[in-house]
Structures are given as structure tokens and as C-alpha cells.
Design a protein around this nucleic acid. Structure first.
Length: 153
DNA sequence: GCCAACGTTGGC
DNA sequence: GCCAACGTTGGC
């Protein structure tokens, strides 16, 4: 499979592009939605990720990350002290996965959701759809390039 | 803070 | 297996 592209959401009050820039690398823990989990399973090392700030001001794509470790069981599901603890996930058959992401770059400015919606080339992009709640979304190469172009250099 | 969208749970 | 109730996400 060729390199793929994704959009992943994070609330910057919890973890922002600046946090990723500082830490360089992070485990993308806490995905607790089956559809998003299934998409994580499809990610490959080297895939590029639009880092999206949700519930923020402004909301939008704040930068780029890349997948550096492919899907593995999310340790937080077994950690009783974690907010992501899932007592119903069997150890022998972990229910939830995580991937590791590395910082690539922060955009000079956030490409806002409003701008994404206003670009006809992005009309099919999941994030621009009404009611889109999925925290991991597939993105086409064309969409990825269009967002980069909007961010400027 | 409101509320639309939509995923999950659980009674039947 | 249906579906109502409930919980969560996330834009506004």
C-alpha cells in the first residue's frame, strides 16, 4: 500500500500541535470508537496526518504529523487510573488500538473549518460534512495537498 | 450553554 | 433484533 493520508482530531486544551512540537512524538491514546479504531488499524508507518484542533478557537487544521508506529494495543484501556480505562476490554483480546505520531510541522496559521468548507475541492472531505464526529478520518492525496496549499509556506 | 448528530446500551 | 433512552462529540 502506498502512503496514505489521514485527519486526526484533538482538543488543543488536552493536546495541541504545540504539545506535539514540544514532545516530538506521542502515543495517540484514547480512541474509543470502533470506526476510528478500524481506521487506525489501516494506518502505515510514514502516513501523513492533518492535525485538527476541535472544540477550539479557531477549529481547523493546525499542522502535520506522521505515523511512526503502526497500530498496537492501547495500554490506557488496562490502566484503572486512566480516563480511558475500559473494564470490558479483555487482556487477551484488546479492544482498543493506538498509533504513535511524530511532529512534522506546525502551519503558520490554522486552516479553519470555515475555509475547508468554502473550498469546493474539499466538499467530500469528512470533516466538512455536517455532524462529522469521527476522530480519525481518511483523506485523499488531493485533499491533503489542497489543505497544505491553503496553509501557505 | 445549546443542541444536532450519532454511537452505545439494555429491556423486551 | 428492534428501538428508546442515554451519553458523547463538537460546532456555533
Amino acid at each position: 500500500m502506498a502512503q496514505a493520508y489521514w485527519l486526526m482530531k484533538s482538543e488543543p486544551s488536552a493536546f495541541s500541535i504545540d504539545d506535539l512540537a514540544e514532545e516530538k512524538r506521542t502515543s495517540w491514546e484514547g480512541i474509543r470508537n470502533y470506526q476510528a479504531r478500524n481506521l487506525l488499524r489501516e494506518t502505515k508507518a510514514g502516513d501523513q496526518v492533518l492535525f485538527y484542533h476541535s472544540s477550539a478557537d479557531p477549529t481547523g487544521v493546525a499542522g502535520i504529523a506522521k505515523v511512526v508506529r503502526e497500530a498496537y494495543p492501547d495500554p490506557a484501556q488496562f490502566d484503572r487510573k486512566s480516563e480511558y480505562f475500559d473494564p470490558k476490554s479483555p487482556r487477551a483480546e484488546p479492544r482498543w488500538l493506538t498509533v504513535d505520531l511524530a511532529f512534522v510541522r506546525k502551519f503558520p496559521r490554522v486552516v479553519t473549518l470555515g475555509e475547508l468548507k468554502a473550498n469546493p475541492a474539499l466538499a467530500k472531505m469528512a470533516v466538512t460534512q455536517r455532524g462529522s464526529r469521527l476522530s480519525v478520518q481518511p483523506v485523499t492525496l488531493e485533499e491533503f495537498r489542497a489543505v497544505l496549499a491553503m496553509a501557505g509556506r
